[in-house]
């Protein structure tokens, strides 16, 4: 489970590794767009990690990167076709950023550094953790931008969940508090602030097992107690 947890928190692709920022900033102007991209990225990540782990003994080392890109491109194209067929309105909005998932460093990075060296179970857990971490970053940024930019939350969810979801919109304010939040400069500013908050929270409680200084200090304490 530590593999899963690492992908969500400590190695979060967005706020810890700053990967996949182009689609993150471009698409996260509403929760529905962010959720659409999160699902698409998660599907590609899970599919490519699973396939690459499954084929890790068959993929020639000298041609591993073209193989990874081929597999990732296949899953990306499948995602685009499914999105176009079943969520056409959302596809029209975020299609370009779904298509460029193929070049997302987050996915290629997990394929190269983890899935190609680990068994299937670990690769799936890693993909789920990384996808959830990316989704949390996307949805947090999408939620904040939507609240500030539109004054609502969960608007236009019918694009993803059908007509029944059109009533899910929560009106928070009568007008937009900060329209800048909907534009790229606003996305940069808010993403920077959110990532700083996330980093700050992560550093407040470092894991004892991963902090060498603390480990040494704890060992010294234990020695002192033993002597006493």
């Amino acid at each position: 489970m530590s593999t899963f947890k690492r992908g969500v928190l400590e190695n979060n692709p967005a706020w810890a590794q700053l990967l996949g920022l182009c689609p993150l900033l471009a698409v996260s102007n509403s929760v529905v767009n962010a959720l659409g991209l999160a699902i698409a990225s998660g599907f590609v990540l899970l599919g490519s990690n699973l396939t690459i782990s499954l084929l890790r003994h068959r993929i020639p080392d000298v041609a591993r990167l073209p193989c990874f890109v081929l597999i990732i491109a296949t899953f990306t194209t499948i995602t685009v076709m499914i999105l176009e067929a079943f969520a056409f309105a959302l596809y029209l909005r975020i299609a370009l950023f779904v298509q460029i998932i193929v070049t997302n460093c987050m996915i290629l990075g997990r394929a190269e550094s983890f899935a190609s060296r680990q068994p299937i179970g670990a690769a799936i857990l890693d993909a789920l953790g990384t996808a959830l971490g990316f989704a949390i970053a996307l949805l947090t940024l999408g939620g904040v931008r939507e609240i500030l930019g539109y004054g609502t939350l969960l608007r236009e969810m019918d694009l993803l969940f059908g007509d029944a979801a059109s009533s899910w919109t929560i009106e928070l304010t009568n007008s937009a508090t900060l329209p800048l939040a909907l534009f790229p400069p606003g996305a940069f500013l808010l993403a920077g602030l959110l990532f700083a908050i996330a980093q700050g929270l992560a550093r407040r409680k470092p894991r004892a097992t991963e902090d060498p200084n603390q480990l040494a200090s704890e060992a010294a304490d234990r020695n002192n107690e033993t002597r006493a």
Partner: peptide, 30 residues
């Protein structure tokens, strides 16, 4: 992963991976 230069097994693996990807795309497209 197989290391070293491309052997005929490696080339066969590449062809099979590419063919599987192509078949999956054709199936989803249909």
């Amino acid at each position: 992963m197989n290391s070293g230069a491309l052997s005929w097994q490696s080339i066969l693996s590449l062809v099979l991976i590419a063919a599987t990807c192509g078949a999956a795309l054709v199936w989803i497209n249909e």
